[in-house]
């Protein structure tokens, strides 16, 4: 089970409202490469993993992704909270604002609500872990894209932290895939 800690994994203190940036960053909340997608992917795939190491890793990374979801939600809220109606109307955040106001809703930057089709569970550890490697890279690309269009240092500092975590997760997934391919494969296919 889970327990909530009343703190962010990495602090978020954004001084300047920026609804345009909020409409981009929300993609990492509810978009296909976002943090909800990541956490649901790993926390769903872990049931059918073959050994303790892989079950632990998917549990731990899936849990960390929940903390990242909270960080991204915090960024969106802080960017939108003090934006004026006029600033919102003249930004891409306007369409989102009609249904969600200055709240945080799991959708991508096109307004497409979160969809579990963004990830798979095959119960095949190789297929699932290879997807996880790609997912970490795709999330890293979205953070790269946010850094290309954002000039707010308060936002970019947090985005750089999240981007680095994608790289570390990729590394750890690669190590478990290697473990399974080199040492555990016969066990998996011998009906353990």
């Amino acid at each position: 089970m889970w327990n909530y800690q009343k703190k962010l994994q990495y602090p978020v203190h954004i001084k300047n409202p920026n609804p345009k940036l909020a409409s981009y960053v929300v993609s990492q909340y509810g978009g296909p490469n976002g943090e909800i997608s990541a956490s649901l992917r790993y926390l769903s795939q872990r049931y059918s993993m073959p050994d303790g190491m892989t079950k632990a890793l998917l549990t731990d990374i899936g849990t960390e992704e929940l903390a990242h979801m909270e960080i991204v939600g915090t960024i969106v809220r802080q960017l939108a909270k003090n934006a004026t109606d006029e600033e919102i109307e003249n930004s891409p955040f306007g369409a989102y604002f009609m249904n969600h106001g200055r709240g945080v809703y799991p959708a991508d930057s096109n307004g497409m609500p979160f969809n579990a089709l963004a990830f798979a569970v095959t119960a095949d550890p190789i297929a699932d872990l290879v997807e996880d490697l790609a997912a970490e890279q795709k999330a890293r690309v979205v953070y790269d894209n946010i850094l290309k269009v954002s000039d707010d240092p308060d936002v970019n500092d947090v985005i750089k932290f999240l981007r680095e975590r994608e790289v570390v997760h990729f590394q750890r997934f690669g190590e478990t895939l290697d473990q399974i391919q080199n040492t555990k494969l016969p066990k998996i296919y011998c009906g353990k």
């Binding site: 089970m1 872990r46 049931y47 050994d51 303790g52 190491m53 079950k55 632990a56 549990t59």
Partner: peptide, 9 residues
Amino acid sequence: DWITEPWPW
């Protein structure tokens, strides 16, 4: 010893 089995499920 965090990674030892069984897991809760």
